[in-house]
């Protein structure tokens, strides 16, 4: 038992192996099976009395379904209307809604050191929220990898790989002169702009998510212009995993330390710096970089997995 579990952990045995083999056998006789099912359905419908029974069941199910949907709709509408009735009137002073905002606007610069209040909010006051968002991105990438990754073990035949290559060759996206020339001009500009946004998150609009999205888009344009081979040389699955893991664990430890030292990140030992300079805002700049790296890796990973089923060609 223990050995088996360790084997499964190391990836030596494939849990899906038996299932795929059965699927392969069925694959050969799929047409036959389809015919059989069709005939079976016809036979069932032709039996005396079956149509009536199945029809009654179907009608009951439909009635239940409709009742449930109507009831849940009415419940949702009622809840929302009830809450709307309890909202404060527009323009009326409401301490619950204005206290926090006032604190952010008045003391945000002093407490976080970031000129951009939004960056101070999402990466200092509410940094746990952003931490969860980055982990959601990473989890989404892992789920897509589980579903779409083709690594030779889960492919039914060589046909799938052949099909991807044939598609790429047919559309000739990595031999097109137009997109290569445009990419030659655009990709450096996009990367510079993305890095600028990433590093200026605390002094101007922007930050980790937007900067990382621009970096990922630049990588996607580079890939569609010059093909996957050029990117595979430096951006492998291993590098992507290391970068994502390093960024996420750095974020978790840094923010955990700050929260541990002083409830809302005020009494930590990292200097705030001059407001308006790039090296300001305490932990905001490194956290921005971490979030941006995760977002860039996730965006390129999605593109690569959906396009050909692997990151970095393995």
């Amino acid at each position: 038992m223990n050995e088996k579990f360790r084997k499964w952990l190391d990836g030596d045995i494939d849990v899906m192996e038996n299932i795929t083999e059965t699927a392969l056998e069925h694959d050969a006789s799929r047409e036959e099976l389809k015919q059989l099912r069709k005939r079976l359905r016809e036979n069932i419908w032709n039996l005396p009395g079956t149509g009536r029974i199945i029809g009654a069941e179907r009608r009951t199910a439909q009635i239940i379904y409709r009742v449930i949907s109507v009831v849940s709709c009415i419940l949702l509408i009622g809840t929302l209307l009830y809450i709307v009735g309890h909202l404060p009137l527009y323009g009326v002073e409401n301490p619950r809604a204005t206290e926090v905002t006032k604190r952010y606007i008045e003391d945000g610069l002093k407490e976080t050191g970031a000129v951009n209040i939004v960056a101070g909010m999402i990466l200092d006051y509410r940094a746990f929220d952003t931490l969860g968002e980055s982990h959601v991105l990473f989890t989404a990438l892992v789920c897509v990898m589980i579903l779409l990754r083709k690594d030779g073990k889960n492919m039914k035949s060589a046909y799938e790989d052949y099909f991807t290559v044939a598609q790429d060759t047919y559309f000739m996206t990595n031999k097109d002169t137009i997109i290569q020339k445009i990419g030659f001009f655009l990709v450096p500009c996009i990367f510079i702009y993305g890095i600028y946004i990433l590093l200026n998150g605390q002094v101007s609009p922007g930050g980790g998510f937007s900067g990382g999205a621009i970096l990922g888009a630049g990588m996607i344009i580079f890939t569609s212009a010059y093909g996957f081979d050029k990117v595979d040389k430096y951006f492998t699955l291993k590098l992507s995993g290391y970068v994502t893991f390093a960024a996420l664990s750095f974020y978790s430890f840094a923010k955990g330390y700050v929260f541990f030292m002083g409830a809302n990140g005020l009494e930590n030992h990292i200097p705030k710096g001059t407001p308006g300079a790039i090296l300001s805002g305490g932990m905001i700049l490194p956290l921005d970089i971490a979030v941006g790296l995760v977002v860039a890796c996730t965006m390129y990973g999605f593109y690569s997995l959906f396009r050909r089923g692997s990151i970095g060609g393995n």
């Binding site: 047919y170 559309f171 137009i178 997109i179 445009i182 001009f185 655009l186 500009c189």
Partner: peptide, 20 residues
């Protein structure tokens, strides 16, 4: 400069996909 570089290319690829 940027929009003249990008927007005709996107039109071109839209037409290319339709053509293929």
């Amino acid at each position: 400069v940027f929009l003249w570089n990008t927007s005709p290319v996107s039109s071109h690829f839209l037409s290319q996909v339709e053509y293929y």
